[in-house]
Write a protein that binds this DNA or RNA. Structure first.
Lengths: 213, 213
DNA sequence: AAGCGTATCAAACACTTGTTTGAATGTAAA
DNA sequence: TTTACATTCAAACAAGTGTTTGATACGCTT
């Protein structure tokens, strides 16, 4: 059938399976602790396929990265005509969902979070394509709230405070699980956490605005 | 000379050298990425000595851990008769110094921070001896500020917000270094960061107290 | 000095890792 | 059918890991 020729070639299928499996394993175990064999097992293919299709484990990570979702989130947020406070609220909520949701995990964001603590050769690309834009976006958003009086250094520290709170729940997950075994990151809990972070941060930001202004 | 017999035996010396080197390497590279060979190189001893003196790499980590400094910090803080707001301020400052100071790095705290993201077999001990007490201490301190009205869940989230902000600077150091190459964690910069975190957090906490009260 | 237990060391071991190889397989054009 | 090419695979490779071994050196008692 001609149809088959128009769909993906067989080689493209294993490529896609490898990328899916790689995103899964990298986000769960981090780059260093993820093994090529585990990835290939999940992709139901041979160990050699990684090097055949992507050259190396590094190459696989580089191609598996795709921060379109995170970028789209920021773009949609900017396009809203809501007040900056509300935009910060909803961004934190969306971001926490990407970081924590057990059902629809954005493996991209989880990989990004992991890379912070344990850099891989792809860190430069990740910083350039995901982290730097994210800091820039949040910086501009906070700037709208605090006004022009606040210094760049203080503004940056606000961004760090927000990101630090968000990432804490991802980084410390194994520990928090032990401290509070009944904890589950369902939709409701994530909403509560995001609401707290937004409220907590907005007070800090507004205080800073008053102090500087 | 009899004196020599009263000082440490030669075997104790290499034990001590191993522990020192282990703390150094574990705090710099994390448990997984630290190699026994690197530790022994710095301790100027043979690879086999780790297993001879500590049984295994795990055993070495277990004995290298010592959270006395962190505990002493909390005890001294409680003993102060200052107001809780001031106590939170000074604790955050001391904690950030332990986490970031390039000159006197508290390898213990850096190991603890690393374990959050990348657990080792010693995580249980670390949670029990360092992290759980730390959360408890901060919880009680924040409770003094917010009063009895605030729920346990919200109180806990405040503690998470504080810790998240503090740990962010340690976890994200490689990334922040790339975003702001001129950044240095000297005493002055750490003071500024700690001051920001304390001010930022106190506003969030007080807001929560009002909201609940 | 001889004997004994501890501590150190170079070397090897067992295992895992990412990567490479060369043969086998499938696909499509000649 | 034959040929050429891309893909897949089992197996091996090379390097790094924590750990073990057996010999050697040291300090101390007898």
């Amino acid at each position: 059938m001609i149809v088959k020729a128009e769909t993906t070639a067989p080689s493209e299928q294993t490529r896609a399976r490898l990328l899916d499996a790689a995103r899964e394993v990298f986000s769960q175990h981090g780059f260093q602790n993820a093994t090529v064999r585990e990835i290939c097992r999940r992709a139901k293919t041979n160990v050699a396929s990684v090097n055949y299709h992507f050259g190396s484990k590094d190459g696989l990570l580089a191609e598996a990265l795709n921060f379109a979702q995170l970028g789209a989130l920021q773009l949609a947020n900017v396009k809203t005509d809501e007040r900056p406070e509300a935009r910060l609220r909803s961004f934190i909520r969306d971001f926490m969902l990407m970081l924590l949701d057990e059902k629809t995990p954005s493996s991209q964001c989880q990989i990004m979070a992991r890379e912070l603590a344990d850099p891989s050769p792809a860190l430069d690309k990740i910083v350039r394509e995901a982290i730097a834009p994210l800091h820039k976006f949040l910086g501009e958003l906070v700037r709208e709230i605090v006004g022009d009086k606040t210094s760049e250094a203080e503004l940056r520290r606000c961004v760090h405070s927000i990101l630090g709170q968000c990432l804490f729940y991802r980084h410390s997950h194994p520990v928090l699980q032990r401290l509070h075994p009944k904890l589950r990151y369902d939709h409701q809990e994530i909403d509560a956490i995001a609401g707290h972070i937004a409220g907590f941060s907005l007070e800090g930001i507004k205080y800073l605005a008053k102090k500087s202004g």
